[in-house]
């Protein structure tokens, strides 16, 4: 591997990591606030890709597909949280099982509507070119992914650190009872954060569509990567999700270079090492594991 290839692979790793961040940050925040691991989170990603593809086929507009798919699945997220998860308030394990049931339903609905053939999302025409980096061609789309990922990370950081709503969410992650004692209706925040998570996951599904496509099984393939991110980075914090995503993105990308078929194993080795030496993740809250 020469230096140009290393730079190309590093950029690939970064773009992939930031794509994972879109997914993992929702998973992490939902857990932080609600204590629930949303096992349907990958399903929101997969459905986002499928719905985005349907909107592109209908309108030919990638940006419209991106926002449309994200909003539609955010709405689905609201329904799931409001009418199902909230009924089991304070029964976290049962809530997880509930999201597991939804994962089956979403998988089968996707199979029913879109069939078993893997599909690919077209890149938006204005990003469908490549740059020359040290003599190697690098797709502009990947650069756009990096910029969008960084932008979302910045927006989320500002939202959590600089707004009132963000302050309540951070407080809720730390001490939910205290937030309630302050007279704040935490249930609305639960619905909100769940919808935000679904929004970001579907958003990621469309962004990742031109690279990963949309296929049955994508839901759990991507969920497992997001789980690896939060295990490595730590649950409940934006910082953990961000650095965990980038780390897993790099490991997966460079793993593919060295062990073509068994790249996935490199991620689990990383996970195992973290579990042995730092069970709460690199940047996790100590009490959460």
């Amino acid at each position: 591997m020469d230096s140009a290839q290393i730079i190309i692979q590093a950029l690939n790793g970064l773009s992939y990591g930031l794509l994972l961040f879109l997914l993992a940050t929702g998973l992490s925040l939902i857990f932080g606030l609600m204590g629930v691991i949303n096992l349907a989170h990958g399903s929101f990603y997969m459905l986002g890709a499928y719905v985005g593809l349907a909107i592109i086929n209908l309108t030919g507009n990638f940006v419209l597909a991106l926002l449309g798919a994200a909003l539609i699945l955010a709405f689905v997220g609201i329904l799931v949280e409001r009418f199902f998860i909230q009924r089991l308030y304070k029964r976290e394990l049962d809530q997880v099982l509930l999201t597991f049931g939804f994962a089956y339903i979403f998988m089968d609905v996707a199979k029913w509507i879109w069939g078993g053939t893997p599909r690919s999302l077209p890149k938006p025409p204005f990003l469908n070119s490549s740059l020359n980096i040290l003599g190697e061609a690098f797709p502009v789309y990947r650069i756009a992914m990096i910029i969008i990922g960084l932008f979302v990370a910045l927006a989320l950081w500002l939202f959590l650190e600089r707004t009132r709503v963000g302050a309540v969410i951070r407080a809720g992650v730390d001490d939910q009872e205290m937030v309630k004692a302050m007279g704040i209706n935490i249930k609305i925040f639960f619905t909100g954060i769940f919808a935000l998570g679904a929004f970001l996951a579907a958003f990621g599904g469309v962004i990742g569509g031109p690279i990963m496509g949309a296929y049955l099984g994508l839901d759990f393939n991507i969920l497992v990567l997001a789980l690896a991110v939060v295990v490595v980075g730590g649950l409940g914090t934006l910082k953990g999700a961000f650095w965990g995503s980038i780390l897993i993105g790099f490991i997966e990308t460079f793993g593919k270079v060295f062990f073509i078929n068994f790249a996935i194993v490199t991620i689990y080795i990383a996970m195992a090492l973290i579990l042995i030496f730092k069970p709460a993740g690199l940047l996790g809250k100590e009490e959460s594991y």
């Binding site: 857990f31 204590g35 691991i37 096992l39 976290e92 997880v96 759990f220 393939n221 969920l223 497992v224 789980l227 690896a228 939060v230 295990v231 649950l235 996935i264 194993v265 689990y268 996970m271 579990l275 042995i276 069970p279 959460s288 594991y289």
Partner: peptide
Amino acid sequence: ILRSSGAYFLMITLAFGQM
């Protein structure tokens, strides 16, 4: 996986199962 419990246990079993 038994180093962790609760949510972590659940996630890690799922992750290693999919591996």
